[in-house]
Each structure stands twice: as C-alpha cells, then as structure tokens.
Design a protein around this nucleic acid. Structure first.
Length: 564
RNA sequence: GCCGCCGUAGCUCAGUGGAUAGAGCGCCGGUCUUCGAAACCGGGCGUCGCGGGUUCGAGUCCUGCCGGCGGCACCA
C-alpha cells in the first residue's frame, strides 16, 4: 500500500520543515482499514506511536504529518482525530474510476507485483501412494494450492510439487497385499501379509489386473505388483486431486536422491561440518533410555541437532545402515534450494513439526540460509455429523476418504469449508451444514453473487443494452461502498501472502458477497424506473463485480457458475 | 513430565498493539407484478478460559495457572 509510504514521506517532510523534531522514522508506518467507515477508509495510529520519540502530543504530531502530506490523486481527505489518529478518505472520483481499472484488467484484476517474478515452490499433499487420500491430505492440498494461487496473484512464478517415496517397507507391503488380492481374484489360496492393506480398493485393482493380464502375472514377484499398485494409486490420487482443482507440476521421487548419491553426500557434508557422531545411544540419553537398551544394540549415526538448539539429537542412519526419513528430507530441501527457488512453502500436518525443525537445522548445519523455507503447519480435521465427532485415524483403518467427502457435499463446498479456517485451528467439518444447499451455506451465498451478475448480463444482452461510455459519477452510496469492498482484495492478497494465511481469502469472499446482495436488491439495472444513463453506470459496476467475484472464487480454487 | 497449537456470542470461527470486539449458522418476525428469494429487512447474544505484568493503549505481547488436541521412535 503506497499510503504508508506517503505518510512516511510526510513525516520526513515535517521534520525537514521543523514541524517535527528529528528522530529516526520507522521504516514501516502502520496503516489499517478503519473500523469506523464514517471517518474514512484508512486510519493510521502512527502519531501515537511517535509521541515518545518526538516528545510531542500525539495530536500535534498528527497535525504536523497531515500538514506535510504529499498530494495523491486517490486521497480525498486527511483528518486528524483524537487521541491522535490520522483518518484518510479516498477521493470519490478516483474511487468510481476504479470500476474501469478493474474492467480493463479483466481476469488479471488486482494482480500485484510483490513477488517481482521470483520463483516460488509450494510442496504439499506428498502422500505416499499406499492408499486413497483422506481428509487430512485434503486440507493439506487446499491450503497448498490456494497458497500457490495467492503467490501467483502477488507476482511469483509458482511451481506445485508433490514429494513421494515408493521404496520403503510400506510400499513392499502394498505390493505384497496386491499380489495376494490378485491371486485371490484368480481363485488361488493366498493371504494378506502381516500389516497388509485391508482396504477394498486393492481387491478392485486386482480385478482390473485380471481383466487386463488374465493369469499371466501368477508367478510374478511382489515387485511387479508394487509397480502396478503404485501406478494405480497415483492415477487415483491425481484424479481425486483434480476433482478439487489441485494439480501438480512436479512429482519428486525420494528415490532419485539415493540414485544420484545426494543422500550420502549430505551425510558426508554434515560430518565434515562436525554435526555427526556414531553411537549406540544419543549423547545425553537418560538412565531410563540406557536401561532399556539391549546388550547387543549396534551403533547408529546421529545428527547433533542439540548444537542448533534442539532438545535431543536425531538419528540420521539406523543401526541397520538404513537412513531415517531425516537424511533424505534434508537432501531434498538442499535440492530445492539448489534449484534456485526464492521462496519454498511446505504444507505439513501439525504432527510433523519436529520434522520441519530438523530439516531447518539440517540446512543451517550445511551452511544454507533456511530463510526462503516457510512451513505452514495445519491442525487436524474432525468430521461432525449429527453433532457427533469422528476422529480420523489411518492407523485404525477408520478414515473418511476425500472422494467420499467430495461425493457427499461437492468439490466447491469442500474447498470453501476447509479454506475458511486458519491452518493453526483444529477444523471441525460440519457435514450437515456442508450438505445444506440453501442460503444457510456460505458457499452458495458467495457463488450466487456471481450467478446474479451473470443473470443481469444475460438480460441486458437480450435487450440489446450495453454499458459503453458509462458515467460512473451517477453511482450512489451503496455502489460506492461496494467498490470500496472490491478494492480491499489487493490488501487481502498481500496479507494472505505475508502471513501465509490463505483463509483470509475465504473470509473476504463472504464479506464481499455480504456487501453485494443488499446492493443487488436495491440497485436495479433493467427496471422501468431506472434512466438509461443510470442503468449504464450500474451495469458497468456489475461488470466489475462479476470480474472480482470470479477472481476471488478462482483464487480459492472454486468454480464461478453462471447458473446454479 | 517437556514441547507445540487452541480457548472470543448458544454452535463453528474471524480478529495486522489502537477508537464502541465481529461474521456465518441457529432462533423470532416481516418482504417476491419488472435483472434469479440459494436473496433482502428488522430483532440479541460477550467476565475475549483465569490471575499477574509490559504499554499512553492488550482479545492481540510477556509470565504463571486451568482445560482441549497433538507431538515427544533407530515410523514417515
């Protein structure tokens, strides 16, 4: 917002003119949306904050700033109010003219340049292909993909990435489970391995294999079935994600980090920098841990994270010689940084917090600046139905899949309900509310605003009416208030970006619709009592409104229907 | 026990250290002869978990309790 910059200039100018004593002017001058709209759109409490520095009364400081404010076309009025607020009102002509600015920008309306074309990567979902996506993954993907949309809108070049592991024990069990299902489908006696995957989906894939290959896979090793299972699972996962508007640019296989040697190279580098030791037990282990140790326990390789503020050191390589997830994870993030991204966003469930910290410490230990890496941690999802809670637990095989949820309430509702919560809050997904297809459901309330705009244009077109050469000064209070609301979008975007808070978009969308519907009722376009000039101006406004609703819905990954 | 997140209206939740704390839902009552009523209009709801502290100013920052959830693996 350039208002903050102007206020800063005004402070400097006031000092220059001896209207204010010399002091260091803060880089960031606070400006906020006024919560008293009758006093103007924006308010700044800066004078009160400077009172101590300047050793003057806040009111005097505010007045000095106001007196030296550089002129700007969008500022209509700047008023000082006790105890020291600076209230700024937008210029009315500038305001109505923004309708044209929005229409001219069209689908790119309110695109910002904060990212300056820098490269950002959003890594999210990253579920291993062992089963269908659950609602936990859904929250992950919705936060990630919306964040990606926001980053694009503020001027980043964005890539979506999905990280997966198709090599571990889980995948072997998956392959063996499918093998058993395949043999069963052929009528051969076979049982699932211990800890095998119970889900019906493997039996289904097995039937498809029979249809495709007949009995020819009968003597194939489990590895063959792992490959088949993985392909089927990924096809499924991609289909599920596409259904809620999530697509990826890159699927990154953890295994490639082993193949190109970077996992072991990472270990060597950590060792060279003195962050590694080999021991049966971590340094500083308690007596209790010592006592639990079996006498023939072998050495593991440890990462001395305590040197970087951790409570205890972490294992890099198990005594079996196999790395834990920590080592490839660090190698992976080194890889991300080496690919030249300026910003790395990683969406993780709250239970992965230690993992996030350890990766960060790994990068630090290797001499990288972890600053570009930002992790969005989100809390768990609970489904509520009939007032009862169901907790998600993959371990107990008691989970609701994303597909079930989407089939139940629809993709747009899933996206909105999940987005409309701060990631740091536990999410209670109320199925009964989500199923509601009426004004009780904010999703339809928002989308209906777009539908109503589309309706106006259908009618206008049918009557051969257009909005060329509209005189926007004819717009009334309701319309102007709505324009004010539309103009908040860039601020919402900037804030959602800076705070990694995609949910702000959802709340804004509801507020915008809340401002729209009363206007729609009152401000008619194609009505016998509305003069053609006025109708043109209003139609022009609805054209901008339609653009903004479409823009907001698309940023949230939702559809902007013309009819419902 | 230690660490993290959360605690704001009946419910689900917003709330960048600033002015009189908000929204949706729920509840009650009204409104369709003209662009879609999935809408509009009116009605009330608060010890911001509790106690200290910092500040000109605290729901917001610090601290101690209380409660809910999660994490404390040679699983990922």
């Amino acid at each position: 917002m350039q208002l903050a910059a102007l206020l800063r200039q005004a402070i400097l100018a006031a000092q220059h003119a001896d209207a204010l004593p010399p002091f260091d002017v803060p880089q960031r001058v606070p400006v906020q949306r006024s919560n008293k709209p009758e006093l103007g759109e924006y308010a700044s409490p800066v004078a009160m904050q400077l009172a101590k520095l300047a050793r003057r009364k806040p009111l005097e400081i505010a007045q000095a700033i106001a007196d030296h404010m550089p002129p700007a076309e969008f500022i209509g009025e700047l008023v000082v109010a006790p105890p020291g607020f600076l209230n700024i009102r937008l210029d009315e002509n500038w305001l109505t003219q923004q309708v044209e600015t929005i229409i001219a920008a069209g689908a790119d309306a309110f695109t910002l340049s904060l990212g300056q074309g820098q490269r950002a990567q959003v890594e999210c979902v990253s579920a291993n292909p062992t089963g269908p996506l659950t609602v936990g993954h859904t929250r992950n993907g919705i936060i990630g993909s919306t964040m990606a949309n926001i980053l694009r809108a503020v001027g980043y070049d964005v890539e979506m990435e999905y990280y997966f592991n198709n090599a571990g024990r889980q995948m072997r069990v998956l392959g063996q489970s499918l093998q058993a299902r395949y043999l069963q489908a052929l009528g051969v006696e076979a049982s699932l391995p211990e800890d095998g995957y119970q889900g019906d989906y493997l039996a289904e894939i097995a039937r498809e294999l029979v249809a495709k290959y007949g009995e020819s896979l009968r003597d194939e090793p489990w590895e063959r079935f792992k490959t088949e299972a993985e392909a089927a699972m990924f096809a499924w996962i991609k289909r599920s994600l596409a259904a809620i508007n999530i697509t990826f640019d890159v699927f990154f296989n953890e295994n490639s980090l082993y193949e190109n040697g970077s996992v072991w190279r990472t270990l060597e580098q950590l060792e060279e920098r003195g962050y590694v030791y080999r021991a049966v037990l971590r340094e500083g282990a308690s007596e209790e841990e010592r006592a639990k140790l079996s006498p023939d326990a072998k050495e593991a390789v440890w990462f001395r994270t305590t040197k970087l503020g951790d409570e205890e050191d972490r294992v890099l390589v198990k005594s079996s010689g196999e790395p834990t997830y920590v080592l490839p994870d660090i190698a992976y993030h080194v890889n991300k940084l080496e690919r030249g991204f300026d910003l790395l966003v990683n969406v993780l469930g709250a239970d992965h917090i230690v993992e996030a910290q350890t990766v960060r410490r790994g990068l630090q230990a290797l001499g990288y600046d972890p600053e570009p890496l930002h992790v969005i941690l989100y809390q768990f999802v609970t489904l509520i139905e009939g007032g009862e809670q169901r907790k998600m637990s993959t371990r107990r095989g008691e989970f609701v899949t994303q597909d079930e949820l989407v089939a139940d309430v629809g993709a747009d509702v899933v996206r909105y309900f999940i987005l409309a919560r701060s990631p740091s809050s536990h999410l209670e997904f109320d199925l009964d509310a989500a199923r509601e297809q009426s004004n009780e459901n904010p999703v339809y309330y928002i989308q209906n605003a777009h539908v109503r705009c589309a309706g106006i244009f259908r009618q206008a077109e049918a009557r051969g009416f257009d909005d060329a050469d509209a005189d926007l000064s004819l717009l009334g209070v309701r319309e102007r208030d709505f324009i004010r609301k539309m103009l908040e979008l860039p601020e919402v975007l900037a804030q959602a970006y800076e705070e990694f808070a995609p949910h702000k978009l959802a709340f804004y969308a509801l507020e915008l619709a809340r401002q729209f519907h009363p206007m729609y009722d009152e401000v008619r376009v194609l009505h016998s009592e509305v003069s053609p000039e006025l109708a043109r101006a209003r139609l022009r406004l609805y054209r901008a409104a339609r653009i903004v609703f479409r823009r907001v819905l698309e940023l949230m990954g939702m559809s902007a229907p013309d009819v419902m």
